[in-house]
């Protein structure tokens, strides 16, 4: 069985899921892609918004007559992804 993900790994998985969807994703899709519960995901999304790593936007759908919420990754979020990849490479290279 895979070990529990650390907090940073969870953040990485969330941001990676958004990046893989072209930088924009619906919360429900994000929940499945990042393999998190709804409550846990919301907690992390709040923190990521607070830290400026993601943004949310709402689009009004004329067809469905309701607004759709999307999560977008910011430039800071992309930088975090790059930095985390470097950290992971460092960890693998030096056996830490």
């Amino acid at each position: 069985m895979a070990s529990r993900r650390s907090r940073l790994e969870l953040i990485f998985d969330i941001l990676l899921a958004i990046q893989n969807k072209g930088g924009k994703i619906k919360p429900t899709h994000l929940m499945y892609k990042s393999n998190l519960s709804h409550k846990l995901l919301n907690n992390y999304l709040e923190e990521l918004i607070r830290r400026g790593l993601i943004n949310t936007e709402e689009e009004f759908s004329k067809k469905k007559q309701k607004s759709n919420k999307s999560v977008l990754i910011t430039e800071k979020g992309l930088n975090f992804l790059a930095e985390f990849r470097r950290m992971r490479e460092f960890t693998d290279a030096f056996g830490l």
Partner: peptide
């Protein structure tokens, strides 16, 4: 210096 920076981010003692 880089290892210390990684430690500051993830707080894992091994770094």
């Amino acid at each position: 210096a880089y290892s210390w920076r990684v430690y500051r981010i993830n707080r894992e003692n091994k770094f």
